[in-house]
């Protein structure tokens, strides 16, 4: 990667993180704690929404957030021609080889 590539790669990474962490904060620290009573005015099935977010929904959201992160980062790596397996095969690096 050229220095320019690196700058762009890093910026894309930071942008993706900012979006995902905002959702994380709204759901994990908002829905289940700060706004739980407001959400409880709505029901999903026979469970109040705030209660459901605190005990189920937030956890599902966290799994999805990491899933999206993994997927987008692999795309990003690909578009910059990063392939760790190839590097290992060529013997240039065992990415941060423990020595």
């Amino acid at each position: 990667m050229t220095p320019d590539d690196r700058k762009h790669y890093w910026r894309s990474n930071l942008r993706l993180m900012a979006v995902l962490l905002t959702i994380w904060a709204l759901v994990g620290l908002g829905a289940g704690t700060l706004f739980v009573d407001a959400l409880n005015n709505v029901n999903i099935g026979n469970v109040p929404l705030g209660f459901w977010m605190g005990q189920q929904g937030s956890i599902f959201t966290f799994v999805a957030l990491i899933g999206v992160y993994v997927w987008r980062m692999e795309k990003l790596d690909e578009s910059y021609g990063i392939d760790e397996e190839r590097d290992i095969a060529q013997g240039v690096s065992k990415s941060g080889e423990a020595h």
Partner: peptide
């Protein structure tokens, strides 16, 4: 910060 072969080592 970058996966792959860019490291000092």
């Amino acid at each position: 910060r970058y996966p792959g072969s860019y490291t000092a080592e």
